[in-house]
Structure formats: C-alpha cells, structure tokens
C-alpha cells in the first residue's frame, strides 16, 4: 500500500486515490493539422517504464483534485508530488 502526499491535503493512504495515467501526455495544439499517427499516439500509446515515471493521480475520496506523482514503478518509491501547474 502506497502513502501518497496530496499537494493539498498531505499524506494519505492509496485507498483514497485513483490512478489517472501518464502525466507526460500533451494534447496536440488546437487547430493544428496532425497526422493520423500523431493522433493515434496521443489517444492510445502510453509509456510503461520499469523505473521512474511521472503519473497523474486523483484524490477521489478527499479533495477531488488531480495532481502529478513522480514515482518509481519497480520500487514504488515516490520522489515528489506536484500540482498540475507545477513542473518537475
């Protein structure tokens, strides 16, 4: 069981959170012409690294805020949590 530090509420049990996927995904610029492959990559393809990964989590049972978690997927060590407008 992970203990995740919500940037708004502090340390809480993983039970209160919901995983939201890769936090590195950037939506293609609005109005910009992009290829089917670029669109396909954005919609479907995700990294699945063994090691350091930047993830989105949702404090669904607490403050209901989304935030980023820098985590090692093999050791489960959490390096840092950030608000959505913050960068590593």
């Amino acid at each position: 069981m992970l203990e995740i530090k919500c940037p708004y509420c502090g340390k809480r049990s993983q039970n209160e959170f919901s995983y939201g996927g890769d936090a590195d995904i950037k939506r293609p610029e609005l109005g910009k012409e992009i290829s089917d492959k670029e669109w396909d990559d954005f919609v479907y393809f995700r990294k699945n690294p063994r090691g350091k990964h930047l993830e989105l989590w949702h404090h669904v049972a607490g403050c209901r805020q989304w935030f980023k978690v820098s985590r090692d997927t093999s050791t489960h060590e959490i390096f840092k949590t950030l608000k959505l407008n913050e960068e590593l």
């Binding site: 509420c9 039970n15 049972a61 607490g62």
Partner: peptide, 22 residues
C-alpha cells in the same frame, strides 16, 4: 478508515473512505 486518528483533533475534518465508501 486509513486516517491516523491519533492525530485527529477537535474541529478537524477529513474526506476519506470507510470500507470503500467515500
């Protein structure tokens, strides 16, 4: 609930889960 109630004082509130119920 996973909250640490030993540090949960008067006039505090918390959103959490109890057996999976928010």
């Amino acid at each position: 609930s996973p909250i640490n109630f030993n540090e949960f004082d008067l006039n505090r509130c918390v959103g959490t889960v109890f057996h999976g119920i928010t």
